[in-house]
Design a binder for these strands. Structure first.
Lengths: 108, 108
DNA sequence: ATGATATATTAGAATTGTCGTAAATGCATG
DNA sequence: CATGCATTTACGACAATTCTAATATATCAT
C-alpha cells in the first residue's frame, strides 16, 4: 500500500543526496538561473551540470522556462527549500554538539 | 568553504534516500522500538535492518538505548521528521497535479 | 563456563550513481 | 542553409549501495 509512497519519497531524497545538486538548489534559491549561469557560478562542467539538472527536473524538484537560446531553471516548490533548511539545521546542531563533545573530551 | 557543508548535507539526504530506511523512520515516529520489533513490523531480514540502522545511527538520525538484551532505537531530532513531512507534502501535491494532468489529457 | 536470544559485522555479487569526453540537438542570426 | 552558442545526450570507466548468507559479539539465565 504505502510501499510505493516510500519508494517515491526515497526517489526525492536520492535526488537531493548529492553535494553538487544541493549546491545547484542553493544557487537557485535566489531566483531562476540559466544553465550557463549555474556553470559559471559553481565551476562544474556544462555536461555535468546538465546531467544533474536532468535528475532534478525528472524528480520535479526544478522547473524550466526557455527564453530564446537559454533555458532557465527554478525551484518548483518552496517546501523543498524548507525541507533542506530543516536538514541543515539538524546538521548545524550536530556540529555544535560535536564540538561540545570535543571540548568535553579535551577537558575544556 | 561551504563545500563541506554541502557534502555533509548530502550525506544526511543519502541516509534518507532509501525506502526501507524511510519505512524504519516512520515506524519510529510512534516512539522507540527494538531491532526485533522493527524486523517484525516491517518484514525485512534482521541483518538488513541492522545494516540500515547502522547507517541511520552513523548519520545520527537515530539514537540508541540498551535495555538488557534489546537495543531500542529512536529518532534523534524531530526536525528530521518535519523535513520528511515536507517532502511527502511535495510528493502528494505532485501526485495530485499528476492526476489532474491525466484528467485533462483524457478530457474529463 | 554453556546455551539461548538479540544484535552487529563481514564478504561478495548485482545493481546503481557519478563524471569526463565526445557527439548531437535546438535555436537564433547572417 | 550555414555558422555559432547553449544545452542535452551517449557511452565508458570507476566508485558507491544494497542485498543475502555466513560469521561474530553481547547479554542474560542456568
Amino acid at each position: 500500500m504505502k510501499k510505493e509512497i516510500f519508494e517515491l519519497h526515497a526517489e526525492v531524497c536520492k535526488t537531493l543526496a548529492n553535494p553538487k545538486r544541493l549546491e545547484i538548489l542553493y544557487a537557485l534559491k535566489g531566483g531562476e538561473l540559466s544553465v550557463g549561469e549555474i556553470v559559471e557560478k559553481l565551476g562544474i562542467t556544462k555536461a555535468n551540470v546538465s546531467q544533474h539538472l536532468a535528475l532534478l527536473r525528472q524528480a520535479r524538484v526544478v522547473s524550466t522556462r526557455r527564453d530564446g537560446v537559454n533555458i532557465f531553471y527554478r525551484i518548483s516548490n518552496p517546501k523543498i527549500v524548507q525541507a533542506c533548511g530543516l536538514m541543515r539545521d539538524v546538521l548545524m546542531e550536530q556540529l555544535a554538539e560535536g564540538s561540545k563533545f570535543v571540548k568535553k573530551a579535551k577537558g575544556i
